[in-house]
Design a protein around this nucleic acid. Sequence first.
DNA 1: CTCATATATGAATATATATTCATATATTAA
DNA 2: TTAATATATGAATATATATTCATATATGAG
Lengths: 116, 116
Amino acid sequence: MKDEICTNETNPEVIIEKLASLLISDNIAYDLSEFFKIFGDKTRIKILQLLSIQETCVHEIAACLKMQQSAVSHQLKILKQYKLVKVRKEGKHVFYSLNDNHIMQIFNNGVDHINE
Amino acid sequence: MKDEICTNETNPEVIIEKLASLLISDNIAYDLSEFFKIFGDKTRIKILQLLSIQETCVHEIAACLKMQQSAVSHQLKILKQYKLVKVRKEGKHVFYSLNDNHIMQIFNNGVDHINE
DNA sequence: CTCATATATGAATATATATTCATATATTAA
DNA sequence: TTAATATATGAATATATATTCATATATGAG
């Protein structure tokens, strides 16, 4: 086999090997998909948008969304786990707010896309 | 009941009503979640990233990802349905490519987030 | 302490969806 | 036409996950 410099490769196996080497790792692909999955639920989208308006406590969120407190709590747990929201306790109330503005940027990218 | 101008509302029901009025609609929340759901899968993430390198045909994608052709085809159908990829047929081959650069922007927002 | 209110959570259920398997369709070569 | 290759797709299976229900925990009021 000759030692060639080949910039315009046509051998299918070599093309596949080259592409495979440029492919993101399974772990990164997994982490990314897990991240976007958070936005892949209607309830979580509504909660995040609501919290972008102002800090809100659990039963107010549930009331706005016309959902059960338990369902909201479960989703808040996921949002907290992925550090998209933060928590402030005040007496009997637990107030949730967005953890960073970055989130709304991603959110708005989505809005731009569906509006195009 | 008096007709008051109240900028600093404290009545819980009024707060909830105000927030509810600012909440995005169920339909928009649904559309957004459906959009982000596309990125919420490891295989689709890999396919999109691969196509960001170059136009690629189905069996090459399958080979790079070390997945069955059928599984890849099913996912490509979803990506096509949501207009994230476009198709070009050439003989026996079907070449897929990204439909717009916007997609990579969203993708990179996610990368930024998980790297923070 | 007792009661009411706010929140969290485990288990069960229902639903969505990713992959596999088998097979259909399409194109090219011989 | 027949065979081979590339792609698509319906059905079945397996798995993930959103919501509900029941209940636990926590805080404050009386």
